[in-house]
């Protein structure tokens, strides 16, 4: 059969073992609760609030990472300076660091008596143990995704294009928006999607800095852990499935947007 050869078989088997079977088990577990029970739990104020916090802050963190990731990638590609390679390597550290270590380090920095927290406290700004603290943790873990997806695209772009734009009389701003950004936009979107996906499910680093106050700074993954502690496997699975569905819809939307962008820009 055309299209159903060895390759297709390998993809289906690998995908089943690694992704589909565990996800099916999750859905099956969630189905252990009745439909009314599932609906009541999924729409309870505390779950809705936790989902809002998790998804809202993950989107915000990914957006912040797009701005700073783009700048960092740009500097790493276009400028040569002392210690560039070290900084280039340091960008990947959030990947390598155990998330609990990151969370404890951030909590120590941003607590009211920490290095940064102590500077902010007189201004009345609280970061540690507030939703702002969650945002800081999510930005930290998501940064490398944007830098690493954008960097190779920027590296391939020729500086001559910018020079040509300048010679043809384009302003600096026009050069950025008209010449530099369009080709990197699909990569930026990929980085955004990855950073968002990573942040939405993040648990380890967040619980140490969040304060974990219900309806204020309680993330959805923590609600899942709380359900598990009560031996409520079905309830935990229900919240898990809701997160999965929301993530899937958002990521699918982002991927479609990215495909549309690539078509319009005629770039690979």
């Amino acid at each position: 059969m055309p299209g159903f050869g060895l390759g297709f078989g390998i993809i289906v088997t690998a995908l089943s073992l690694v992704v589909l079977i565990p996800l099916a088990a999750l859905v099956l577990k969630a189905a252990g609760a009745g439909p009314e029970e599932i609906w009541a739990l999924a729409t309870s104020p505390r779950v809705l609030s936790a989902l809002r916090i998790s998804f809202g802050l993950a989107l915000l963190a990914a957006a912040v990472n797009v701005v700073f990731g783009l700048i960092i990638a740009w500097v790493l590609v276009r400028y040569d300076f002392l210690g560039r390679r070290i900084i280039d390597a340091a960008v990947d550290l959030p990947f390598a660091l155990p998330t609990a270590v990151a969370g404890i380090a951030l909590a120590a920095l941003y607590a009211p008596n920490g290095w940064i927290g102590a500077l902010l406290a007189p201004l009345g700004v609280k970061v540690g143990y507030t939703p702002a603290g969650i945002l800081m943790a999510l930005i930290f873990i998501g940064l490398p995704f944007v830098v690493r997806t954008v960097q190779p695209v920027l590296a391939e772009m020729e500086a001559e294009l910018e020079e040509a734009a300048a010679l043809l009389g384009a302003s600096r701003w026009k050069t950025i928006t008209g010449v530099i950004l369009p080709p990197v936009l699909p990569a930026v979107l990929t980085g955004f999607t990855l950073a968002f996906a990573r942040a939405v499910g993040e648990y380890g680093s967040v619980i140490f800095i969040a304060g974990n106050i219900p309806m204020v700074s309680e993330i959805a993954p923590l609600l899942i852990v709380i359900r598990l502690e009560q031996f409520d496997y079905a309830g935990a699975a229900v919240i898990g499935v809701v997160m999965l569905l929301l993530s899937f819809i958002l990521i699918l939307g982002l991927n479609l947007l990215q495909a549309a962008l690539r078509r319009r820009l005629g770039h690979v």
Binding site: I104, N212, I213
Partner: peptide, 13 residues
């Protein structure tokens, strides 16, 4: 209660 840690050691910290 301003912070709800998940375990006793975390709360001590």
């Amino acid at each position: 209660v301003p912070v709800l840690d998940t375990g006793a050691r975390g709360a001590t910290t």
